[in-house]
Amino acid sequence: MLGGYISDLEAGDVFEPVRYLLTPEAISAYATGNEEDGDWFHGDDNPWGRQVRPPTMIHSDKMRLLEANCLKEQRIAGMTGQGPELESDARIHYEYHAKQHSPAFAGEELVVSGRIADRYERRGRDYLLYELEVRTADGRLVTTYRDRTVLRYRKEDDR
């Protein structure tokens, strides 16, 4: 179910897409946080002549999508003091799987869409399987992405 907590998400839920402008500052911030000092990610001096984002920035897109679709658990706002303090369990990322189809550049408008492909329990923990894709506003495919996340680290039996 959309609109609530991340733990309310169910298999088959389709996220309302998020559209945003990819700024040079956002790319540099992401790269800097990961100590990626390669010049391609901080300016236009690269094979494409435009500042390009790291492929892993799909992780940031996932956060944007959840922020817009899980209104009772806005983790960006909660972790930066811009919204209600988070009361839900921490979500534990378990698997990242991204395939690049084209680069994304500063100044492009991106559209992030996706769905919950599966939700299942394994060894006492609940998992969500996300399937996301990122396209430019004019339809060019940038990244396809699958992500497994554990809804809480502590097992049900340990609570």
């Binding site: 992401y30 946080g33 990961n34 940031s60 960006i76 972790m79 811009q82």
Partner: peptide
């Protein structure tokens, strides 16, 4: 800081 700044815009 980097992740959240990139996601917050």
């Amino acid at each position: 800081d980097g992740l959240l700044s990139s996601a917050a815009g």
